[in-house]
Design a protein around this nucleic acid. Structure first.
Length: 940
DNA sequence: GACATCACG
DNA sequence: GACGTACGTGATGTCC
């Protein structure tokens, strides 16, 4: 930095960051934060700083910029308003709470020690253009950090763009993709097509597609205008002739000028290292606790001398010692172990984490156990470490790795811990405790009582972020955990945790327990403040052992049946492939959507446009069904092939590989804090998406069988989400129908179309059903028209009629969205909070957030209800020879001894139908249907 | 590792 | 400053 800069030129790389785009992204992506001390709105500044920090710390290797600047728009009025007074006229004023943040973003840029540039009378785009030209002409390279389409004209010749959100470069090909012409003709296309957002008029009735076609045909805009008389389409010809002046003005509006005056040199933009004190001062003045700490740690780690004065409000609470990995103890003798057990008894709680040889709790072996009793007071007890890994050697004569010496025997450690782990007076704190619970249960220890930091975070923050420990530590403790990859590596060279040398494993492992304990202390007081204690205590915390027992029980499957099905599927697929190749006139990979798209749309010339950002043809079932309906055979065969291929690869081939060799059963794993809405998710394997909708698929359920002398019993809630909607939206007609037990979709159809329920046309009922579901999902005419394959206007008519007939639903939707906007979250009937970031965004992205906010309280309440039922179920069926095995959102599957089927159904149904009470007294009944069989197909 | 596709509620 | 379209999931195969 002190060295005299060389003149900017070859080998130099200039980064130009579109500051205004950063600000607006930040503003819309974040909830409206204010500074605690004085209420100053700082949400956009916070997001802006986070983006800059991410930008600054991104590893770019040899591609790193040598020069960089952030460029801002100076004011709304620019020279373009002299050309065309209405330019950007329909741009709304920036929001009230954003305006005071503009100058702060300049301060932030300077605090990051990045050049901060704006010029009166010019837009950021003009300055970026001038700098790009200048740098390129000097022989350097330029990267414009922005995804603004107005800048795309600059791409090429050493200038590229970089989408800051996706991190993806935008080069000539992407520009061509977007505009249908190369960058040098982009302004011509823009001049013709105009731009509603910037209020650039263009030529009426001409969009990007048509514009690109015309420019390609005539070469450039002037030629096109000169020869406009030759255009065949009369309307298009007249438009171009009539609006030639307007088009030329449009071109001047969109064209960026390389000659925008600059009052500084390229050399002055040379990248400078952050000035740590200045940056930390700014960030702490803004009161960004997390970011301040993150920046301090990063800069401190690289240049410890710089951080002389720690920021005023570093996040670590002052009473907590900092995390010190060197302070952890490795327990290798009996006396030390006894001392730790005594500490646990003294404090009445312990944070615990198990380290194992794998991720499958049903098969993994213990490598060690970590404990923490106070922040900073943690230990690691190795019990299963073996020689190997990068230590090399150590295999004994049998090819088995021998235990490393100096570890306490596993049995002794477990025997010493078992009394405290099962002691009702000692709280066991963990992160995703279901995992550790299962590991220890396999060794005869059933931990209770439990507290789970992952579930606390889920109760507090569902919808905002994920709840893994590394993420939580960074967010709430401003601490970066040692990545597991640092110990076990990745890919083929990956070793298991038992092979990690103990001296390397201990700090990592003990840190996990320490961090967990600190997270617990952070979250515990927040639960009552945020009013999520009831949710945590009734639907999160107690479900851990319930799910653990279900997963350990597993379900029996008949692998032979599945293997036979695989064989028969293979034959069907081979037969279909022959037909497909014959119809296509060539062989190809039927499983490749890319190859299929080329054959259907390029080679055979069927209608069906491109889609998506990759520009590839869509060959989804939707598209193929339409083609099949037009009488094309190939798409129809492909659909058949796909269905069989799916069943084979995902189910009949895969399921047998999940059979546990010891139990002979399949053990899924439920993630408790994965879904945004409170639902569970099933993984490894997913047993919540076993086929049922088609006849062939349903046969896979026949392979899910009961143990000898037992039956499978399935109980499922009937229409639970619609019942919840009827209750929360308080819709008299719907509630009465549920009370009377009549067909709800037929009733809806009857009300909407004025036809009697008796003898209803199935097609009419189907439409009503689609609308009922649509409402739950935050209906749109587009979605409904696609689902029912009817014109959009007709779909809109249906929706209008529906809202007219059930006005309470509209009121509920509006109310929910309003709540989401003001609170940043929505709640279920049972108090579960689901955060709704992005609800205050504008534009189409807001549509998705809006629909999610409408759906969340309904889907979430249904999830609450079945969770409540599951928590109560073990006690309710304790006296019966029965086990709960699976949950599929609104269904519970049990395995019951033959003679106890009726008792089980009675007991479980009572629990399920009463699960909302006493917390909520629903104004509609909950109804549970039951089925019994030797296999899941019969039971369902 | 991203994307497309498709299985479920 | 552009953005795609019913909500919520997970697994698989292709292709880069």
């Amino acid at each position: 930095m002190d060295s005299i800069s060389a003149t900017f030129g070859k080998g130099h790389h200039l980064h130009l960051i579109d500051g205004s785009a950063f600000i607006f992204r930040a503003y819309h992506a974040l909830p409206p934060l204010t500074r605690k001390s004085d209420g100053l709105p700082v949400g956009a500044v916070a997001g802006f700083c986070n983006m800059l920090w991410k930008y600054v710390t991104d590893e770019r290797g040899s591609d790193a910029p040598t020069h960089a600047a952030v460029i801002f728009d100076h004011s709304a009025k620019t020279f373009r308003n002299q050309i065309y007074s209405a330019y950007k006229a329909n741009r709304p004023e920036p929001p009230e709470d954003l305006r005071p943040q503009f100058p702060l973003t300049r301060d932030a840029t300077r605090a990051f020690n990045i050049a901060c540039i704006e010029t009166e009378g010019y837009e950021a785009d003009d300055i970026i253009a001038a700098l790009s030209c200048k740098a390129r002409d000097a022989g350097g390279r330029v990267t414009i950090v922005s995804s603004d389409k107005d800048l795309m004209q600059l791409v090429g010749d050493g200038v590229q763009m970089l989408d800051p959100i996706k991190g993806k470069p935008i080069d000539r090909d992407e520009v061509f993709e977007k505009f249908g012409v190369w960058p040098d003709r982009v302004v011509d296309v823009q001049a013709l097509a105009g731009d509603a957002v910037d209020n650039v008029p263009g030529a009426p009735g001409i969009g990007i597609k048509t514009a690109a076609q015309l420019i390609t045909e005539y070469g450039d805009l002037e030629t096109l205008l000169a020869r406009a008389g030759e255009i065949k389409q009369p309307k298009r010809r007249q438009t171009l002739i009539d609006h030639a002046d307007q088009i030329r003005i449009s071109k001047r509006l969109v064209e960026l000028d390389c000659n925008t005056p600059l009052d500084f040199t390229l050399e002055s933009l040379e990248v400078r290292a952050p000035d740590a004190p200045a940056l930390l001062t700014f960030l702490s003045e803004m009161e960004f606790r997390t970011l301040t700490a993150r920046v301090a740690e990063r800069l401190g780690a690289e240049a410890p001398a710089v951080v002389s004065a720690p920021p005023r409000d570093a996040p670590a609470a002052p009473d907590l010692p900092p995390i010190d990995r060197a302070a952890y103890e490795t327990v290798t003798d009996r006396a030390a172990l006894d001392r730790w057990v005594q500490s646990i008894r003294d404090t009445g709680h312990v944070a615990i984490d198990t380290e194992t040889t794998g991720l499958d709790e049903m098969q993994a072996d213990l490598a060690g156990i970590c404990l923490a009793v106070a922040p900073g007071v943690a230990c690691y007890i190795p019990v299963g470490h073996v020689a190997g890994g990068d230590a090399g050697g150590g295999d004994d004569l049998f090819g088995q790795s021998a235990l490393v010496a100096g570890q306490l025997p596993l049995a002794q450690v477990l025997a010493a811990l078992k009394p405290v782990l099962e002691d009702d007076a000692i709280l066991k704190i963990g992160q995703n405790l279901k995992y550790d619970w299962k590991i220890l249960a396999r060794h005869g220890i059933r931990m209770a009582p439990l507290a789970d930091t992952m579930l606390m975070s889920y109760a507090l923050n569902a919808g905002t972020h994920n709840h893994g420990m590394d993420e939580l530590a960074e967010r709430y403790l401003a601490h970066k955990c040692i990545p597991i990859k640092d110990l076990i590596g990745t890919g083929k060279a990956q070793i298991n945790f038992a092979q990690v040398p103990i001296d390397k494993a201990a700090p990592y492992a003990a840190e996990d327990a320490d961090v967990t304990l600190r997270l617990y202390r952070h979250f515990a007081p927040l639960l009552p403040v945020e009013r999520v204690t009831t949710v945590y205590e009734t639907t999160e915390r107690p479900i851990v052992p319930v799910l653990a027992e279900m997963e350990m029980a597993g379900i029996r499957i008949d692998s032979d049946v599945l293997r036979r099905m695989s064989g028969s599927f293979a034959q069907s697929m081979a037969g279909l492939e022959d037909e497909i190749f014959a119809l296509a006139g060539q062989r190809f990979n039927v499983g490749s959507p890319k190859q299929l798209g080329e054959i259907l749309f390029d080679k055979m010339g069927l209608a069906g446009g491109k889609t998506g950002k990759t520009g590839a043809f869509s060959t989804s079932a939707d598209v193929l069904e339409d083609l099949a309906a037009e009488g094309h055979d190939l798409p129809s065969r492909i659909l058949d092939w796909r269905q069989i291929a799916k069943l084979k690869s995902t189910y009949t081939d895969a399921l047998p590989t999940f059979v546990n060799p010891e139990t002979g059963r399949v053990h899924t794993s439920y993630s408790i804090a994965g879904a945004q809405t409170g639902r569970l998710a099933s993984t490894d394997p997913n047993l919540q998406n076993i086929p049922v909708r088609t006849e062939e698929g349903r046969r896979i359920r026949e392979a899910f069988i009961a143990a000898e002398g037992h039956r499978l019993v399935s109980l499922d809630y009937s229409q639970i989400e619609l019942r919840i909607l009827a209750h929360v939206a308080d819709i008299p007609a719907l509630k009465q129908a549920f009370r009377d037990g009549i067909d709800i979709h037929a009733m809806t159809a009857s009300q909407m179309f004025g036809v009697p329920v008796e003898g209803m046309d199935p097609m009419i009922r189907r439409r009503a059903k689609a609308i009922n579901f649509g409402v739950i999902y935050g209906i749109s005419s587009f979605g409904l028209s696609r689902n029912l394959r009817i014109p959009r206007a007709e779909a809109q008519d249906f929706i209008d009629t529906y809202f007219q007939r059930f006005p309470e639903i509209r009121a509920y939707m509006d109310r929910t969205v309003a709540d989401a906007k003001s609170d940043g979250s929505v709640r279920t009937l049972f108090g579960r909070r689901i955060n709704t970031p992005g609800i205050n965004a504008s534009g189409p992205a807001a549509g998705g957030a809006r629909r999610a906010a409408i759906n969340a309280p309904i889907q979430g309440a249904a999830a609450d209800i079945i969770r409540r039922a599951m928590v109560r179920m073990p006690a309710a069926i304790a006296g019966l020879p029965a086990r709960m095995l699976l949950q599929v959102h609104d269904e519970l599957v049990f395995e019951v001894r033959e003679d106890a089927v009726d008792d089980l159904i009675a007991a479980a149904r009572t629990v399920m139908e009463g699960a909302a009470e006493p917390a909520v007294r629903l104004s509609v009944p909950l109804v549970v249907d039951a089925g019994v069989g030797a296999n899941w197909a019969e039971a369902h």
